[in-house]
Nucleic acid binder design. Structure first.
Lengths: 156, 156
DNA sequence: GTAAATAGTATTGTGCACAATATACTGGTG
DNA sequence: CACCAGTATATTGTGCACAATACTATTTAC
C-alpha cells in the first residue's frame, strides 16, 4: 500500500528513471561522438541515412521525422548544420516542390566506417552485459509502441 | 553473429529506445502538467521540493542538482521562472553567501495536492501494468547506477 | 477548372541541457 | 594579514525539442 508521499517520491517515478538514464547514456556517447564532431541527435540522423544508403536511397525530411519521432522544427536546423559540414546535401524535389530530399555526401558515407565502433565502445567497462542490454532495449521498445498505439482513439 | 549493418541499425540501439521512450513519456505528461502550468523539468524540481518540505526543509540549488543530475546552467533560469510564478522563493544564505536556498511558497505547497493524481493518470489506458513499470524502473535505476559509478576511476 | 482541404517543410519563440567561463565567497597556509 | 585552493552559483553561447504559425504545392470536390 502506497502513501501519497510515495506516489510523488522522485525515485519512485518511472519517468525520472527514464529521464536520468537517457541523459547518462547520451553523456557517455558525447566524447565518442565528439571524435566525429557529431552531437547525439545528429548521430541518430546519420544512422537513418546510413541505413537508407545501403539500398542506395535518399530520404525525405518527413521520413527522418517518422523514424526519429522528430518534427521539422528540430530537423530543419539540424540538417542545415550537417549540410554546412558537408556530410549531407539537401535539395528540393523537382517533381513535388514541397519535398526536401536529404542525401549523404561522400564524406557522410565515409564517416560510417569511423562510427562503426561507437556502439561497441559505449558500454565497455560498465559491467552491463549484452543480454541485459537487449532485454532492456526490447522492453523499452514494447512500452514505446504501447504509448504510441494509444492516443489516437479511432483514426482508421 | 551481427553484421556491421546490424550494429549501426537504429532500431538495434539501446540508446534510441531510451531516447524515444523518454520523449514519449514526457509527451504524455505534457497535457497533465499543463493543467498545473508546469513543464516536465519544473515538475521534477517540484517533486524534490515537496519531498524536502515533508521534513520542513528548504534546499540548496546544489542539492537539486545532485538529485536531478542537472547543473546551475539549467537550474538557475528554471528556478527563476518558478519564483516569478510565485511557487518558490530563492534567497542567498546569510552565513555563506555563495549558497542560494530554494523554499516552497504557500502556493507551491498547495500545488502538491493537485499534482498527486498525475502519476496515476499517466499510464491509464496504455495497457502497461504496475508490475511491469516497477520492473522497468528498477532495471533503469540499476543501469544508471552502473553508468554513474564508473567514469571517476579513483577519487577516494 | 477553381475553391477548399491537405501535405511537406520552414520559421519563430520558449524552455531545457550542457560546456565553458566568470564571479563571489570561504577556509586554510605561511 | 595576503595568498591560494576550493566551493557555490551565475552567465553566455550552442544545439536540441516542440508548439504555433506560415507558406507553398498538391490533391480532391464540386
Amino acid at each position: 500500500m502506497k502513501s501519497e508521499d510515495d506516489i510523488l517520491a522522485l525515485d519512485n517515478q518511472l519517468c525520472f528513471a527514464l529521464y536520468a538514464a537517457n541523459r547518462a547514456v547520451t553523456a557517455r556517447y558525447r566524447p565518442l561522438l565528439a571524435e566525429l564532431n557529431l552531437t547525439y541527435p545528429q548521430y541518430l540522423v546519420m544512422l537513418v541515412l546510413w541505413e537508407a544508403d545501403r539500398d542506395g536511397r535518399s530520404v525525405r525530411v518527413s521520413y527522418l521525422g517518422k523514424r526519429l519521432r522528430l518534427d521539422s522544427g528540430t530537423l530543419t536546423p539540424l540538417l542545415k548544420r550537417l549540410a554546412e559540414r558537408g556530410l549531407v546535401i539537401r535539395q528540393r524535389d523537382t517533381t513535388d516542390e514541397r519535398v526536401v530530399t536529404v542525401a549523404l555526401t561522400g564524406e557522410g558515407i565515409a564517416m560510417r566506417k569511423r562510427a562503426s565502433d561507437v556502439p561497441g565502445r559505449l558500454l565497455c567497462g560498465t559491467g552491463i552485459d549484452e543480454e541485459r542490454i537487449v532485454a532492456l532495449r526490447d522492453e523499452l521498445r514494447s512500452v514505446l509502441s504501447l504509448l504510441e498505439a494509444e492516443g489516437e482513439p479511432s483514426d482508421r
